[in-house]
Simulated assay, not measured.
Amino acid sequence: MTEHAFSPAERSAIYRVIAARRDMRRFVPGSEIPEDVLFRLLQAAHAAPSVGLMQPWRFIRITDPALRRDIHAVVDDERQRTAEALGPRNAEFLALKVEGILDCAELFVVALGDGRQAHVFGRRTLPQMDLASVSCAIENLWLAARAEGLGMGWVSIFDPRRLGQLLGVPEDAEAVAVLCLGPVPEFPDRPQLEIDDWAVGRPLSEFVAENRWAAQAPIVGWST
Protein backbone atom coordinates (compact mmCIF):
# COMPACT_ATOMS: atom_id res chain seq x y z
CA MET A 1 0.00 0.00 0.00
CA THR A 2 1.27 3.51 -0.79
CA GLU A 3 0.40 6.99 0.43
CA HIS A 4 -1.65 7.43 -2.75
CA ALA A 5 -4.12 4.67 -1.81
CA PHE A 6 -7.73 5.51 -1.07
CA SER A 7 -9.18 4.75 2.36
CA PRO A 8 -10.25 1.15 3.13
CA ALA A 9 -13.93 2.16 2.87
CA GLU A 10 -13.38 3.84 -0.50
CA ARG A 11 -11.44 0.87 -1.85
CA SER A 12 -14.15 -1.49 -0.65
CA ALA A 13 -16.80 0.55 -2.45
CA ILE A 14 -14.86 0.41 -5.72
CA TYR A 15 -14.45 -3.36 -5.61
CA ARG A 16 -18.06 -3.75 -4.54
CA VAL A 17 -19.47 -1.81 -7.48
CA ILE A 18 -17.27 -3.78 -9.90
CA ALA A 19 -18.55 -7.08 -8.47
CA ALA A 20 -22.18 -5.89 -8.41
CA ARG A 21 -22.29 -4.58 -12.00
CA ARG A 22 -24.65 -6.55 -14.23
CA ASP A 23 -25.69 -6.40 -17.88
CA MET A 24 -29.35 -5.52 -17.36
CA ARG A 25 -32.28 -6.30 -19.65
CA ARG A 26 -35.26 -5.65 -17.37
CA PHE A 27 -36.15 -2.07 -16.42
CA VAL A 28 -38.92 -0.29 -14.57
CA PRO A 29 -41.28 1.06 -17.29
CA GLY A 30 -42.14 4.75 -17.08
CA SER A 31 -39.20 5.60 -14.82
CA GLU A 32 -36.89 8.60 -15.20
CA ILE A 33 -33.33 9.59 -14.38
CA PRO A 34 -32.83 13.09 -12.92
CA GLU A 35 -30.80 15.33 -15.21
CA ASP A 36 -28.09 15.93 -12.59
CA VAL A 37 -27.57 12.18 -12.21
CA LEU A 38 -27.45 11.72 -15.97
CA PHE A 39 -24.85 14.49 -16.20
CA ARG A 40 -22.68 12.76 -13.57
CA LEU A 41 -22.89 9.49 -15.48
CA LEU A 42 -21.83 11.08 -18.76
CA GLN A 43 -19.04 12.96 -16.99
CA ALA A 44 -17.81 9.62 -15.64
CA ALA A 45 -17.86 8.19 -19.16
CA HIS A 46 -16.01 11.20 -20.54
CA ALA A 47 -13.32 10.80 -17.84
CA ALA A 48 -12.27 7.46 -19.36
CA PRO A 49 -8.71 6.94 -20.60
CA SER A 50 -8.16 7.10 -24.34
CA VAL A 51 -5.17 6.32 -26.52
CA GLY A 52 -3.34 9.52 -27.46
CA LEU A 53 -6.12 11.44 -25.66
CA MET A 54 -8.17 11.07 -28.84
CA GLN A 55 -11.49 10.76 -26.96
CA PRO A 56 -13.16 8.81 -29.80
CA TRP A 57 -16.53 8.36 -28.07
CA ARG A 58 -19.76 10.00 -29.20
CA PHE A 59 -22.94 9.60 -27.13
CA ILE A 60 -26.29 10.10 -28.88
CA ARG A 61 -29.19 10.49 -26.44
CA ILE A 62 -32.43 9.15 -27.89
CA THR A 63 -35.42 11.22 -26.74
CA ASP A 64 -37.78 10.71 -29.72
CA PRO A 65 -40.18 7.80 -28.95
CA ALA A 66 -40.58 7.00 -32.65
CA LEU A 67 -36.81 6.82 -33.09
CA ARG A 68 -36.58 4.55 -30.07
CA ARG A 69 -39.06 2.19 -31.73
CA ASP A 70 -37.05 2.31 -34.95
CA ILE A 71 -33.89 1.36 -33.06
CA HIS A 72 -35.76 -1.49 -31.43
CA ALA A 73 -36.79 -2.72 -34.88
CA VAL A 74 -33.16 -2.66 -36.06
CA VAL A 75 -32.13 -4.70 -33.03
CA ASP A 76 -35.01 -7.15 -33.37
CA ASP A 77 -34.18 -7.81 -37.04
CA GLU A 78 -30.62 -8.70 -36.09
CA ARG A 79 -31.91 -10.81 -33.20
CA GLN A 80 -33.76 -12.97 -35.72
CA ARG A 81 -30.67 -13.27 -37.93
CA THR A 82 -28.49 -14.15 -34.93
CA ALA A 83 -30.95 -16.88 -33.98
CA GLU A 84 -30.73 -18.34 -37.49
CA ALA A 85 -26.92 -18.28 -37.31
CA LEU A 86 -26.94 -20.17 -34.00
CA GLY A 87 -28.47 -23.25 -35.61
CA PRO A 88 -29.33 -25.81 -32.88
CA ARG A 89 -29.52 -23.09 -30.20
CA ASN A 90 -31.98 -21.03 -32.25
CA ALA A 91 -35.03 -21.49 -30.02
CA GLU A 92 -32.96 -21.25 -26.86
CA PHE A 93 -31.59 -17.89 -27.96
CA LEU A 94 -34.99 -16.52 -28.96
CA ALA A 95 -36.25 -17.32 -25.45
CA LEU A 96 -33.65 -14.98 -23.93
CA LYS A 97 -34.47 -11.36 -23.19
CA VAL A 98 -31.60 -9.56 -24.89
CA GLU A 99 -32.55 -5.88 -24.59
CA GLY A 100 -34.73 -3.37 -22.74
CA ILE A 101 -34.94 -0.67 -25.38
CA LEU A 102 -38.66 0.06 -25.05
CA ASP A 103 -38.71 0.03 -21.24
CA CYS A 104 -35.53 1.75 -20.05
CA ALA A 105 -35.59 5.33 -18.75
CA GLU A 106 -32.81 6.53 -21.07
CA LEU A 107 -31.48 5.18 -24.35
CA PHE A 108 -28.09 6.06 -25.80
CA VAL A 109 -26.28 5.02 -28.94
CA VAL A 110 -22.51 5.13 -28.61
CA ALA A 111 -20.41 5.61 -31.71
CA LEU A 112 -16.77 5.79 -32.71
CA GLY A 113 -16.24 9.39 -33.78
CA ASP A 114 -15.35 10.58 -37.25
CA GLY A 115 -11.83 11.70 -38.18
CA ARG A 116 -10.18 8.89 -36.20
CA GLN A 117 -7.70 8.20 -39.00
CA ALA A 118 -5.87 11.40 -38.07
CA HIS A 119 -4.91 9.91 -34.69
CA VAL A 120 -1.73 7.89 -35.15
CA PHE A 121 -0.38 8.00 -31.58
CA GLY A 122 -0.96 4.49 -30.16
CA ARG A 123 -2.87 3.32 -33.24
CA ARG A 124 -0.26 2.84 -35.95
CA THR A 125 -0.04 -0.92 -35.36
CA LEU A 126 -3.21 -1.25 -33.25
CA PRO A 127 -5.91 0.83 -34.96
CA GLN A 128 -8.56 -0.92 -32.86
CA MET A 129 -7.41 1.04 -29.81
CA ASP A 130 -10.08 3.60 -30.67
CA LEU A 131 -12.70 0.94 -29.91
CA ALA A 132 -10.80 -0.03 -26.75
CA SER A 133 -10.98 3.59 -25.62
CA VAL A 134 -14.73 3.78 -26.26
CA SER A 135 -15.15 0.55 -24.31
CA CYS A 136 -13.42 2.16 -21.34
CA ALA A 137 -15.90 5.05 -21.49
CA ILE A 138 -18.81 2.62 -21.57
CA GLU A 139 -17.42 0.72 -18.58
CA ASN A 140 -17.02 3.96 -16.63
CA LEU A 141 -20.66 4.77 -17.34
CA TRP A 142 -21.70 1.25 -16.34
CA LEU A 143 -19.93 1.38 -12.98
CA ALA A 144 -21.14 4.90 -12.22
CA ALA A 145 -24.70 3.84 -13.02
CA ARG A 146 -24.46 0.88 -10.64
CA ALA A 147 -23.11 3.16 -7.91
CA GLU A 148 -26.17 5.39 -8.44
CA GLY A 149 -28.46 2.35 -8.12
CA LEU A 150 -29.25 2.27 -11.84
CA GLY A 151 -29.01 -0.62 -14.25
CA MET A 152 -27.40 -0.57 -17.69
CA GLY A 153 -27.53 -3.00 -20.56
CA TRP A 154 -25.09 -3.01 -23.49
CA VAL A 155 -26.87 -4.11 -26.68
CA SER A 156 -24.63 -5.13 -29.58
CA ILE A 157 -27.18 -7.00 -31.68
CA PHE A 158 -27.64 -4.61 -34.61
CA ASP A 159 -26.36 -3.76 -38.07
CA PRO A 160 -24.00 -0.77 -37.52
CA ARG A 161 -24.53 0.62 -41.00
CA ARG A 162 -28.32 0.49 -40.76
CA LEU A 163 -28.30 2.07 -37.29
CA GLY A 164 -25.83 4.70 -38.48
CA GLN A 165 -28.07 5.66 -41.38
CA LEU A 166 -31.02 5.96 -39.01
CA LEU A 167 -29.11 8.41 -36.80
CA GLY A 168 -27.19 10.35 -39.45
CA VAL A 169 -23.81 8.98 -38.37
CA PRO A 170 -21.01 10.13 -40.76
CA GLU A 171 -19.47 7.57 -43.09
CA ASP A 172 -16.16 7.51 -41.21
CA ALA A 173 -17.86 7.07 -37.83
CA GLU A 174 -19.51 3.88 -36.57
CA ALA A 175 -22.22 2.96 -34.07
CA VAL A 176 -20.84 0.35 -31.65
CA ALA A 177 -23.33 0.12 -28.78
CA VAL A 178 -26.92 0.70 -27.79
CA LEU A 179 -27.10 1.42 -24.06
CA CYS A 180 -30.28 0.91 -22.04
CA LEU A 181 -30.14 2.82 -18.77
CA GLY A 182 -32.51 3.27 -15.83
CA PRO A 183 -34.03 1.93 -12.62
CA VAL A 184 -34.41 -1.85 -12.51
CA PRO A 185 -36.61 -4.17 -10.41
CA GLU A 186 -33.54 -5.87 -8.91
CA PHE A 187 -29.91 -6.72 -9.52
CA PRO A 188 -29.30 -10.49 -9.78
CA ASP A 189 -26.45 -11.95 -7.74
CA ARG A 190 -24.84 -13.45 -10.84
CA PRO A 191 -24.88 -12.80 -14.61
CA GLN A 192 -28.28 -13.24 -16.24
CA LEU A 193 -26.86 -15.54 -18.92
CA GLU A 194 -25.76 -17.90 -16.16
CA ILE A 195 -29.23 -17.76 -14.62
CA ASP A 196 -30.73 -18.50 -18.05
CA ASP A 197 -28.30 -21.45 -18.54
CA TRP A 198 -26.84 -19.89 -21.68
CA ALA A 199 -23.22 -19.76 -20.50
CA VAL A 200 -21.11 -20.12 -17.37
CA GLY A 201 -18.39 -17.69 -16.29
CA ARG A 202 -14.94 -19.25 -16.00
CA PRO A 203 -12.41 -18.61 -13.19
CA LEU A 204 -9.63 -16.03 -13.37
CA SER A 205 -6.96 -18.74 -13.31
CA GLU A 206 -7.91 -19.77 -16.86
CA PHE A 207 -7.10 -16.30 -18.18
CA VAL A 208 -3.76 -15.46 -16.54
CA ALA A 209 -0.39 -16.80 -17.69
CA GLU A 210 3.20 -16.08 -16.72
CA ASN A 211 5.92 -15.29 -19.27
CA ARG A 212 4.39 -17.45 -22.03
CA TRP A 213 0.91 -18.02 -23.46
CA ALA A 214 0.06 -21.36 -21.83
CA ALA A 215 2.13 -21.16 -18.64
CA GLN A 216 -0.29 -20.82 -15.75
CA ALA A 217 0.63 -18.12 -13.25
CA PRO A 218 1.19 -19.72 -9.82
CA ILE A 219 -0.66 -17.09 -7.81
CA VAL A 220 -2.36 -18.23 -4.62
CA GLY A 221 -6.10 -17.66 -4.70
CA TRP A 222 -6.41 -17.18 -8.47
CA SER A 223 -8.23 -20.50 -8.95
CA THR A 224 -11.56 -18.89 -7.98
Rank of each mutant, 00 (worst) to 15 (best):
V155K: 02
V28D: 01
F93M: 11
I18T: 01
A137Y: 09
A9R: 05
G100Q: 13
V220T: 05
H119Q: 15
T224H: 11
A199V: 12
G182F: 11
Q128C: 08
A73Y: 03
E35W: 01
T224Y: 07
E3A: 02
A118H: 15
P29L: 04
Q55G: 00
A118G: 15
H4A: 06
G122A: 13
D76P: 01
G182D: 12
R58Q: 12
G149S: 03
D64E: 12
A83M: 10
R190P: 04
T2F: 04
V184G: 05
A47M: 12
S12H: 06
A209E: 05
M129H: 15
S31N: 03
I62S: 00
E194D: 07
S205H: 10
L53N: 12
D70S: 14
I62P: 00
A217G: 02
V37I: 14
V17L: 02
R116I: 15
H119G: 13
R124M: 14
E84G: 01
C180H: 11
R40C: 02
P88I: 11
P127S: 12
M129I: 07
C136I: 05
Y15G: 08
L143Q: 06
P29D: 03
A9G: 00
F27R: 02
D64C: 09
R25I: 00
W222V: 06
I60Q: 03
D76E: 15
R58G: 00
M129W: 11
A177E: 09
C104E: 15
R190G: 07
V169F: 06
F187I: 12
I62G: 00
D196H: 10
L167H: 03
A9N: 01
P65V: 04
P185I: 11
R89N: 12
R26N: 00
V184A: 06
G149C: 04
Q43R: 11
P160V: 06
S205C: 08
V74C: 07
G201V: 09
